[in-house]
Design a protein around this nucleic acid. Sequence first.
DNA 1: CATGAATGAGTCTTCATTCAT
DNA 2: AATGAATGAAGACTCATTCAT
Lengths: 215, 215, 215, 215
Amino acid sequence: MTTGAVSPRRADTRRNHERILAAAAASLTASGELAFNTIAKAAGVGVGTVYRHFPTRDALVLAVYAREVEHLVDVVPVLLREQSPQDAFHAWATDHLARYMMTKRGLAEALHAATKPHEDVAGKAYEAMVDAMSTLIAANVQAGTVRPDIAAETVLRGLGGLFFLDPRGDWRGEAEALTDLLWRGMQPDRSEIAPGALRGAEARQSERSIDPIYP
Amino acid sequence: MTTGAVSPRRADTRRNHERILAAAAASLTASGELAFNTIAKAAGVGVGTVYRHFPTRDALVLAVYAREVEHLVDVVPVLLREQSPQDAFHAWATDHLARYMMTKRGLAEALHAATKPHEDVAGKAYEAMVDAMSTLIAANVQAGTVRPDIAAETVLRGLGGLFFLDPRGDWRGEAEALTDLLWRGMQPDRSEIAPGALRGAEARQSERSIDPIYP
Amino acid sequence: MTTGAVSPRRADTRRNHERILAAAAASLTASGELAFNTIAKAAGVGVGTVYRHFPTRDALVLAVYAREVEHLVDVVPVLLREQSPQDAFHAWATDHLARYMMTKRGLAEALHAATKPHEDVAGKAYEAMVDAMSTLIAANVQAGTVRPDIAAETVLRGLGGLFFLDPRGDWRGEAEALTDLLWRGMQPDRSEIAPGALRGAEARQSERSIDPIYP
Amino acid sequence: MTTGAVSPRRADTRRNHERILAAAAASLTASGELAFNTIAKAAGVGVGTVYRHFPTRDALVLAVYAREVEHLVDVVPVLLREQSPQDAFHAWATDHLARYMMTKRGLAEALHAATKPHEDVAGKAYEAMVDAMSTLIAANVQAGTVRPDIAAETVLRGLGGLFFLDPRGDWRGEAEALTDLLWRGMQPDRSEIAPGALRGAEARQSERSIDPIYP
DNA sequence: CATGAATGAGTCTTCATTCAT
DNA sequence: AATGAATGAAGACTCATTCAT
C-alpha cells in the first residue's frame, strides 16, 4: 500500500505534466511567448502531449499562473506566523509579490483579465490573491496598524504597479517605496490610534521617518 | 520662403503619417493587435509606406503612445490653473489617467517598457508622464498638501494599478479608492503640517474624514 | 461443448467489433470523417482496439460498406418474391439504391475504387452489387421485359448517378426519372417482343406512355 | 495601345495565377489531394501567394473545376457544327465527358456539390453543364432523334456514372455501353418516329444492332 | 516616395500509429 | 486483448519583411 502501487505510466504522465508546466512558466517568464511547439521541445515531449494535457492555450496559461498564485498565497500564513502583521505585509509585498509581478508579467495580465471574480479560472486566481491580501489586512486591522475600511482589492491594485518595475534596476528600493506609500495610506489617522502603536512599522517603513517625540 | 511653399508631396506624406498613426491607435485600442498589413489597409496605404514611416513595430507603437501621453501631459497645466493642487491631482488621476490606462493599454506598456529613462522613445513618454506627475506633486508640496520627499515615479507606479480596472465595472469608484489611498500616503505627517492646510483635500478625500474641530 | 461455451472474452471481442463498426458507420454517414481516435471514443474502446479489429483505414471502411451492401443485396430476393420483375427493379433502384447512394456516399466511392472485381474487399462489395443487379436483370429478361444483352455493370453505373442526388430536394422524383430513363434503354426493341409484354411496366413507368394500339 | 502597356508585375501575377491553377489541377487529378503547401511548391511560389490568389480551399477547387467545365461546355457547339446531333451527343458523352469524369474527379464533385443551381460558383459550373446537355438534347429533339420530354439533368446524372470508370480498363467500351443505354432510353417511341430516322444512330450505337435485312 | 505582390519562416492543430502497461 | 498516453509528421494559416515597378 505504498505510493509505488501507482502505475509507472501514471507517474510518467504526471512528470510530463510537470515538465510542460515548467517549460511554459520559463517561456512565459523569459519572453512572454507561449508557442506550443516550443514548449513541447523544451519539455522534451511531443506537441501532441502538450495538447493532451492542456487543450487550449488558456488552459496552459492558467495552469501556470494558478501554480504561482498558489505559492504566493501559501506564503501568507507563514509570514504572519513568523513576524508582526505589518512586517508580514511589507515582506509579502516587497519580497514575494514584487518578484512575481516583475518576472511573470502574465500574473499581472491574469489580474487584469479577471477582475470579474468567480467568472473563470483567472477569476479564481484573482480571488485567491485578494484573499491573501485580505488576510494580511485583517491581521493588521487587528493589530491596529491599518484602518478597518481598507479594501484588499484597492491595495492589490496599487501594488499592481510593481508590475512596472525593471528587474535590472533597483527594483527592491522602488518596491519598498511603493509599498511604503501605500502603507502610509492604509494607516489609521494619527489622532485615532494609540500613541506608539506605529513605532515599529514607522521605523522600518522609512529611514526618513521623523520620530514624533512627545515630551 | 513661407511655410506655404511646402511641396504637396510633403503634405501627402504628413497626411499618411497621421492616417497610419490613427489606424494603429484604433487597432491597438480595439484589439491590441498590430499587424502591419492590417494597419496599412486600414490607413489606405501600402505596407511599404507604413514601413517607411515606422521602420520597426516599436517605432509605431511608441509613436502611438507618445501621442497619447502628450494628451495626458498637456492637460496638467490646465488642471492646475483651474483648481486647487489637490483637486488637480485627483482629477488627473481619476479622470484622465484612469481612462487612458483602461482604454489604451499601450499606455501601461509604455510605463512598463520604459523605466530606463532617456533611453529611447518609450523613455521619453515615461519621462513626460513623470514630469506631469512631478508638476502636480510640486504644486501640492507648495500648498503643503503633500510631503516633499515623494517621488513622482513611485506615485505613478501606484497609479499604474489603474491599468487593472475593468471598464465595464465601477471603475470610477475604484479609481477614486486607489487615488485616495495613495493620496493619504503622500500627505505630510499630521504633526508637521500647518493646521488647516489639509482642510480642502481632507474634505474631498473622504467622507469619513475626522473633523478637526478646534475651539 | 455447445455454442454457449464461447468464452466471455470472445463475446466481448465480438461486441467491440460491432460497436466499432456502428460508430464508424455513423461517423461516415454524418460527416464523411473517419478519425480512428474519434471512432474509438464513440465506440467506447481504446484506439488500440480499433486497430486490432481493423488494421487499416480501408479495412474499416470496407467493413462498413460491406455491411451496407449486404443489406442492399439481401433485399433483392425479397423484392422479387413480392412483386413483378420490373417493379422489383424499380423499387430496388429508387427505394433502396438511391437512399444508400445519397446517405452513404462512401458506397459510391467503394463502387468507384473497386471496378476491378476480385481484386480486394472493395471488389467483393462491387461484385455483390453487380450480382444483385444481375439477378434483377435476369428476372426481367426471363419475363421478356429487358433485353438479354444488358450488362449489369452498365446499368449499375448509370444508377451511379443517383450519387449526385440532393437529399434535401426532390430526390425521389429524380431517382425515378433516372431509373425510367435507364429502364427504357434496357427494354427489348418493340418489334422483337411479344405484343403486350410491356404493358404493365410501361403503364407504371411513365404516365406519358403512349399505348400503341394496333387495329 | 498595345498589350505591352500592361505592367510586368501584372503579367507576373497573372502567370502565378495560371501556375497555381495548373498545379492544383494536376494534384487534384493525380491524387485528389489539395495541400496548399504542396500546390505552392509545385507552382514554384510561396504559400502566401497561393492564399492571396485563392483565399480558401473552395475558391481554388472551384477555379479548377470552372476551368474544366468551361472546356467541356465550349466543345459542344463545335461538335454540333461538325456532325449530326446524335453523333455529337455520343461524342460529347464518350469522348469528352467520360474523359473528364475519370481524370478530374473534381468535376464529378462539382456535379454533386451543386445540384442547387444558381447558388454559388459550384452551381454555375453545374448549370453550365446542364446547359451544354440541353443544347445537345435540343438539337436531337429537333432532328427527331430524342423525345422532347427528356430533362438534361436526368441524362447528366445518368452519365455521372462515367465517374466510376476505371481509366486503366476498357473505359471506352464501357462509356459507350452506358451512353448507348441512356441513348436508347432517350429515343422517341418507335411508332412515333419516321421510319429511317434512327438509322445512323442505331448503326453507330451498337455493333449488336439487329441486322436490318432488306430484301 | 508609394505600392502591394511575393515570400517563407514560424505557429497552430490534427491524427495516424506505436507501444508500454 | 484492451487501453490510452505519447509521438511527430503533415498540412493549414498568418504575418513580418522585401523589392520590383
